[in-house]
Structures are given as structure tokens and as C-alpha cells.
């Protein structure tokens, strides 16, 4: 649904995006992660045909950026970082304006506006000037605005920033629902927990693409797979038994807790359990140990010098 090949953007002498080659499949939520100034918004703006690439190629919904810009803009929805609403107008007037720009007829406009105001819980305050709305309500209205014309691809730039936890959850749930409708979501976010929960794949980006994979695979690539064993009153015998296991790598002891890197956890975990029990350990808990996406992200980004 989205493809880029060596896409680049420079502003005067500053390279904002370099050699970005990327594929986002139809119906996928792709999270684009990177520090401030990494070029995430610039990338999104290029794909939304708001700014022109300096070099490289990109297609969105099968249409070429730079050649079919009007057609692309008609097929995408975008939630920009700032809501950018008309604050003197009410919610319906704001949405009606955009629905008209997308060429929706009167009946469709009315239906779509009512639908999204209802879904996003803004129906009761639809006649109030938007200037009276909270940040969360404005964000929800901006999301409704991006979806009125039922776009195939939706770009979200920091969709839950500055939202309270409850509103953030509503927005996250809504994004997940959009995926279930088969839409492709390109999500620029700082919120790693959000990316972890929502994204099928994650691209870690800092001027260029550092890594792309599923959150789970990124963890595995960086940290392998670790399993955590908690025993009561850990003695030397179990420690010696573990040291004798050739497949148990990078064994770490922390009080009564043992963390072991295993290449094939499903096969090897029972053998570790047997070794510990045979050595007289009282095993209390066994569970996979997951690095947070935040740890993965920080590891990837800190090794990349800013260009």
C-alpha cells in the first residue's frame, strides 16, 4: 500500500530523510519511531504529498508521489500534529467543510459526520464552538476529519500526545478498529507502549531507517529470547547444574531469580526446569522475559549518531 525507494529530503544543507526504502502492506499498522527531529513528520508529509521528495520514489495506494498528488490526497486521511481546527465553528461545521472539499454529496456528508461524531463520542456537543473543546475532544474531532471520506491509508502524527489516559485509550482502540476495517495505518509516534500494542511492524528511524520488523522480532534480534526462573533459597548446587547445560547462555543471577538466554525456549525450558529440580531447587515461577520496546528503541537509536 505504501512503498518508498531511496526516498530522500534535504532542506538547504540539512538532510531530513535519507535513502528511505520501505514497504507497508495493505491493512497493516506500521509504527514509525524516532527521536524529535528524526524526520518522521517530513516522511509523512512526503507520503501525503504535502512536500516534494528531493530524490527517490514513493507510491501510496498504487499512485506515484509527485505525479498523482491530487489523487493520493483524495485517498488518504491525515491527522496532523496540531489539530488545526476552526475554533469559532462547531464540530459539524468543521467536518462539513472538509467533507465538501472531498466532494461528498449532502446525504453522504450528513451520514458520515453523524457516524464519526457518534463513534468518537462527540455527538452531544456537536453544536458547540470547537474553541470550547478539551484537547482530547479536539484530537478526536481531527481524527473524524481525517476519516470522513473513508480513506484507504491513514497517517497519524502523534495521535495520543497531550491526551489524558482515558482519551488516549479511546483513540488507540479506534485505531485498532480502523485496522480491523482493513485500512492501512502509518503511525508516527513517540509513545513506544502505543507502538508495541498497536503496530504489526515498527520502523526505527533517525534520518534513515535503522531497523524494521515486528516488535517481537526486534526484541529477539537485539536480546535473543530469555526465560526467567524464580527459585526459593537458591544454593550453589542449582547454579552448578545450570553451568553444566551447554545450551544455556548468558546466565544472570539476581537474588532468587535466574535469567537465561535460550535459542529455542519451547524445547529448552523443560530441560532447564529438570536440571534445577534435580539439583534440589524449589522452583516457584517460570516465565518468558520480554525486553520492553523502549529498551530496544533506545538501544537502536543511541548507536546512531545524528547526521
Amino acid at each position: 500500500m505504501i512503498q518508498t525507494h531511496n526516498l530522500a529530503k534535504t532542506f538547504d544543507k540539512f538532510t531530513a530523510v535519507a535513502d528511505l526504502s520501505l514497504t507497508v502492506e495493505a491493512g497493516e499498522i506500521f509504527a514509525f519511531l524516532g527521536p524529535n527531529g528524526a524526520g518522521k513528520t517530513t516522511t509523512m508529509r512526503m507520503l501525503a504529498c504535502l512536500i516534494a521528495p528531493t530524490s527517490g520514489e514513493a507510491t501510496v495506494a498504487g499512485l506515484r508521489v509527485g505525479q498523482d498528488d491530487d489523487a493520493i490526497r483524495a485517498r488518504i486521511g491525515i491527522l496532523t500534529e496540531a489539530p488545526g481546527l476552526y475554533e469559532k465553528l462547531n464540530a459539524v461545521q468543521n467536518l462539513d467543510f472538509f467533507a465538501r472539499l472531498y466532494g461528498l454529496d449532502a446525504a453522504t456528508r450528513a451520514k458520515q459526520i453523524a457516524r464519526y461524531l457518534d463513534i468518537l463520542g462527540l455527538g452531544e456537543r456537536q453544536q458547540e464552538p470547537v474553541g470550547n473543546f478539551s484537547k482530547g475532544m479536539k484530537q478526536k474531532l481531527s481524527i473524524a476529519r481525517a476519516l470522513l471520506h473513508e480513506p484507504q491509508v491513514v497517517f497519524f502524527d502523534e495521535p495520543t500526545s497531550a491526551l489524558d489516559p482515558e482519551s488516549a485509550k479511546v483513540v488507540r482502540d479506534f485505531i485498532a478498529e480502523l485496522k480491523s476495517e482493513g485500512r492501512t495505518i502509518f503511525l508516527c509516534t513517540h509513545n513506544l507502549d502505543e507502538a508495541d500494542r498497536l503496530a504489526d511492524r515498527v520502523g526505527v528511524f533517525k534520518q534513515h531507517l535503522i531497523q524494521v520488523d515486528t516488535p517481537e522480532n526486534l526484541r529477539r534480534k537485539l536480546y535473543g529470547q530469555r526465560v526467567l526462573f524464580r527459585v526459593r533459597d537458591l544454593t550453589d548446587a542449582p547454579k552448578r547444574a545450570l553451568a553444566a547445560l551447554p545450551f544455556a547462555r548468558d546466565i544472570q543471577f539476581n537474588g532468587d531469580t535466574i535469567s537465561i538466554a535460550l535459542d529455542a525456549p519451547d524445547e529448552m525450558t523443560p530441560r532447564v526446569v529438570n536440571a534445577l529440580v534435580d539439583a534440589g531447587a524449589a522452583l516457584c515461577e517460570v516465565r518468558p522475559e520480554r525486553a520492553s520496546l523502549e529498551e530496544v528503541y533506545l538501544d537502536l537509536v543511541k548507536t546512531e549518531p545524528r547526521q
Binding site: D70, R73, A74, A82, L85
Partner: peptide, 14 residues
């Protein structure tokens, strides 16, 4: 000032 041009320019409007 209200940064409303970006969402506006992201529509098919010329």
C-alpha cells in the same frame, strides 16, 4: 496562527 493549513492542504484542494 492556528496551524489549520496543513490539514487543509492535505485534502485534494489546489
Amino acid at each position: 496562527q492556528t496551524k489549520s493549513l496543513e490539514p487543509l492542504l492535505a485534502t485534494p484542494i489546489r
